Every structure is written in structure tokens, then in C-alpha cells.
Simulated scan of single mutants.
Amino acid sequence: MVTSGPLLLGIPAGDWLQAFSGIIGVVLTVLVTLWIEGRRRQAEERADLRIVETAVRDLEDALDACEAPLPHDQNLQGRLALAIAAQKRLHEATPGYEFARAQTVVRDLTVFRELRYLDGALASKAATIGSEYNILLGGAGRVTEAVLQVNQVRVREIAAYLRPFVSGASETLSAKL
């Protein structure tokens, strides 16, 4: 038998080199595929968190509107319309947030905790938010100045209670994105 190069275990060096190159190629292909998949998954998670972040910002804007004092230079109907508009934003932002949360899988424990705190806070005030909003909606001709003032006090209390939870979630989401 005539060989053209050195042998190792009876196998020519060129065959060893070819086998080693094939193994390296497979390993690199798998590693690059895993890296690309990881990057794709991170991008999807960030996109999902951006949806939740948008919903949290909507809640912040709604709380801002609810905390804003009503102008005293308008008549009762004008202030009532502003109060209804502000509470409508909060009333609609809450289900928007709940929808975004239901669509999003959160894999970061810090974000998960903040969002769970916010979930609990919103759940504890959901009935009150709805009832205060419905008081104003149902009483177009029956809402007096005293009813509007009590409503505003209650809504501001709700907003003050929710603010730290909404701010905490917003800050945590912003830090992760």
C-alpha cells in the first residue's frame, strides 16, 4: 500500500482535516442559529413589552387627566363634561392595559413583579372606577355641584392610590427597553 502523506490510525491526514472541518462547520452553524434565534426572541419580547409600556403610559395619562383640577370659571355642565372625559380615559385605559397584559408573556422577574402589583391595584379599584364614572354618565341632568365635588375627591383618591403602581411599572419597563 502506497500513501501520499502521514497516517494516524491508518487514516490519511487529509481525511482527518476534512472530518474536523465538517465538525467545526456543524458546530458553528448550530451556534450561529442559536444566537440568531436568541436575538429574534429578545426582539419579540421587547416588542411585547412596548405594547404593555404603551398601555401603562395610557394609564399615566388618564391619571394625569383625573388629577387635574376642574376649572372654576366654567359652569357645572362644562366641568361635568371635563370630568366625564377624564374618567372615560381611565375607564378605557384599564381594559386596554388588561388586554396588553393578556397578550404578553413576561420573562423578566422584576417586570413581572411590577406588573403584578399594578394588576392587583387596578383590580382593587376597578369597581370604584366604574361606579364613579357611571354616576357622572347617568346623571346628566341630576348631577349637582356637591355630587361632582364628591366624585372628584373619590377619583383623585383612586388616582393617588394607583399612581405609585403605574409609575413603578412605567419606570421598570422603560429601564428594560
Rank of each mutant, 00 (worst) to 15 (best):
I24R: 07
G25Q: 04
V26L: 12
V26D: 03
V27Y: 09
V27D: 05
L28K: 05
L28R: 05
T29S: 15
V32L: 13
L34G: 06
L34F: 09
W35Y: 12
E37Q: 15
E37L: 14
G38V: 03
Q42K: 14
A43Q: 11
E44I: 12
E45N: 07
E45T: 08
R46N: 10
R46Q: 12
D48Y: 06
D48V: 01
L49V: 00
E53R: 14
T54N: 11
T54C: 06
V56R: 00
R57T: 14
L59V: 00
L59C: 04
L59D: 02
D61H: 10
A62P: 03
L63C: 05
L63D: 03
C66A: 13
C66Y: 00
E67P: 01
A68D: 09
A68Y: 04
A68Q: 14
P69D: 15
P71I: 04
D73V: 07
D73R: 08
D73A: 07
D73Q: 08
Q74I: 12
L76H: 05
L76Y: 03
G78M: 01
A81P: 05
A81H: 10
A81G: 07
K88Y: 11
L90T: 01
E92M: 13
E92Q: 13
E92F: 11
A93I: 00
T94N: 07
T94S: 08
P95M: 02
P95H: 01
